[in-house]
């Protein structure tokens, strides 16, 4: 279990899909213009999604 909690700030997400494409573990998916987190357990906390999100719309929390 990775013990990571991914928080999506929906009002900030513009659906650019960078996070989905650059997540090495395919944790994320686009629901039209909003990122979703279908497989949080696969997250390895590499932080790419948070680092590459231009819109401050996704955070990787330790849990």
């Amino acid at each position: 279990m990775s013990g990571a909690r991914l928080e999506v700030i929906e009002r900030n997400c513009k659906g650019c899909s960078i996070c989905v494409e650059f997540c090495p573990k395919n944790v994320l998916e686009m629901d039209v213009f909003l990122v979703t987190v279908p497989r949080p357990e696969d997250c390895i906390k590499c932080m790419q999604c948070e680092l590459l999100c231009p819109d401050f719309a996704i955070k990787v929390h330790d849990e």
């Binding site: 009002r11 231009p54 819109d55 719309a57």
Partner: peptide
Amino acid sequence: LPHIWCPGC
């Protein structure tokens, strides 16, 4: 936030 920059900018 959200800022004015386009999606993917």
